[in-house]
Each structure stands twice: as C-alpha cells, then as structure tokens.
C-alpha cells in the first residue's frame, strides 16, 4: 500500500518505460491479490473436506478437491428454488421498471402537463427517505393487498417482493435526465409526420436510449438480487425465499460445516458475477456518472 501512496500521480511514472513489463505490476499484483483473497479463500474452502477445513493452521489448497460439496449443498437446501425465486422477482422488477420509468421519465422530460413540476418534486422527495422509515407501513400495505386483492401479492409470497419495487423514483430521475439529452428536433420531425407521443417514445427516443436503459436494467438486477432486509421481513417459508435470504437461512442451519456453506456461497455468487462481468461497462458508467456530478 505504501508504495502505491507515494506514486499516486497519474500517468507520468510510466511514461517512457518500454520494458517487457512495467514495474507497476509489482504493486498491482499484490494489491489485487489482497482484494480478491476473501473470494479465493471461499472457493478453496468450498473444495475441502470438513476435516481439512477444521484444521489449524489451515490447509491452503485441498489435497483432493471435493467437487461433491456443491452437489451436497444443492441437495441440503432448495437452492434451485432460491434461484428460481430470485430470477422471477428480478425479471418482473426489471421489466416493470424499464416500462414504467421510461413512460414516466419521458413525460417529465418532454410533455408539458399541468402539475408537472409539483408532481416531479413530490416523487423525487421519496429519494431522500430511508427505507427504514417506510418499511413498516409498506409491510402493512402489502399485507392489505394480500388480504384484499390477491394472496399472491401478500406476505410470504413472491408478489410481496415485486410489488413495492415495480417503479423507483431513481429510475424515473435517471431516465428523465437521459431523455433530455435526446435531440428534440428528431422528435418534432416525427410529430409533424403524425406520430403520437407514445409512437415517438418507442420509435425515436427509446432506441437512442439503449445505454441508459441497459444501465438501469443492470443496476436494478443487482439491487433486486442482493436485497436482504425486505425479503427477511416479508418471507418466512423456504419455498418463497430468494438467494440471499435462503443463504442466510442455510448458514443458520449449517453453521459449522464450512465447506458446504462455502459451496452454497459460491453458487449464490455466480449469477451476479456473470451479470457484472457482462455488463461491467454499464455499472462503471452509472457509478462514475453519479460520482462526477457530485
């Protein structure tokens, strides 16, 4: 770390170096290693026998990697159900957010309707409210939906995980900001040719907004998949649990069987790691973009 501190100025240190490999690798390799060691250790443990895991000092590499831990974990807890539930919730929430937030965001960006400013302020104000303030009433509202509309929307059903997240103020704000950068001349031309507002949105604006839509989709999948507190509050039966909740339940039931736990943990991480690697560009853009605006 200390070597990194003393040479933090960008670019200049490496200028002019044309060696087979830059000396910076001597800093970067150990630094990266320290950052990923927790995950490497998780994978190493997931391949150990329980005997190996309960040895001190630890066995760094398992003698005979025990892949069967993964099958054991898969059979010990209904991981298949957890994945299916998380996938269903994420798909519904992402699809709904893309549709609803783009309609709402577009209206705020382009349509001059009565009460626009006031409504926009009211919706954006919810961004400041921490989830802990709203979670108790949202629990009661979801319970009401379950009792009065459909049990599938109520407590202890996947609907309870979808319903409060179908649209977000962040998504509306994010898309509105992007839609405002789409050249208005293009839209006017289509309007003159007789397109409706919806036609303009779907034929002109959305095709030009794919980077923003992809970013919102990527962020929404990650948030939905990794959410824990809300599922913990509304879901109690195993067959409705999402991956993080199921994993926490699994951890509570098998506290000392570390190889089994780590195998479950690795499996739970794979989908989001894949999504992250595929959509890394969008994650980086979204985080970097918000950060630079200050």
């Amino acid at each position: 770390m200390s070597t990194a501190t003393s040479s933090v100025e960008p670019g200049s240190a490496t200028r002019g170096w044309r060696l087979p490999f830059s000396p910076w690798h001597l800093v970067l390799v150990p630094l990266t290693f320290v950052l990923v060691v927790p995950m490497l250790w998780m994978v190493a443990t997931s391949l150990q026998t329980q005997g190996e895991a309960n040895r001190f000092p630890p066995v760094l590499l398992p003698h005979d990697p025990r892949i069967a831990n993964y099958a054991d974990a898969w059979h010990t807890a209904p991981f298949g159900t957890f994945f299916l539930n998380s996938t269903l919730v994420a798909l519904v929430v992402v699809a709904s957010n893309l549709v609803v937030c783009s309609l709402t965001g577009y209206a705020f960006a382009r349509v001059r309707f009565l009460g626009r400013k006031a409504l926009f302020m009211a919706l954006m104000a919810t961004l400041m409210v921490p989830f802990q303030v709203t979670m108790i009433p949202v629990f009661l509202i979801v319970k009401w939906f379950g009792d009065n509309v459909s049990p599938y929307l109520g407590i202890n059903h996947l609907g309870a995980l979808m319903l409060p997240n179908l649209a977000t103020a962040f998504g509306i704000f994010f898309l509105r900001q992007f839609f405002q950068t789409v050249p208005v001349e293009l839209e006017e031309a289509a309007r003159v040719d007789g397109s409706s507002r919806l036609g303009v949105l779907f034929k002109i604006v959305l095709p030009l907004s794919m980077p923003a839509m992809s970013t919102l989709a990527a962020l929404t999948i990650l948030t939905s998949w990794n959410d824990f507190l809300w599922p913990l509050i509304v879901i109690t039966s195993t067959d409705q649990m999402t991956v993080p909740l199921g994993l926490s339940y699994f951890q509570g039931a098998h506290q000392t069987n570390w190889p089994l736990l780590m195998a479950g943990n690795v499996m739970s991480l794979v989908p989001m790691l894949v999504v992250f690697l595929l959509a890394q560009r969008y994650f980086v853009q979204s985080v970097a973009g918000t950060g630079l605006k200050g």
Binding site: T32, L35, V36, M39, L222, N226, F228, L269, M272, F276
Partner: peptide
Amino acid sequence: AAYITMAVSTISEGII
C-alpha cells in the same frame, strides 16, 4: 478484480 466486490451480496460478504 477491484470492481468485483460491488457484485458480492452483503450476505455472501458476511459469510466469507
């Protein structure tokens, strides 16, 4: 490798 912790859920992180 440095970004990747962003994709790790708080629960996975806790277990690790």
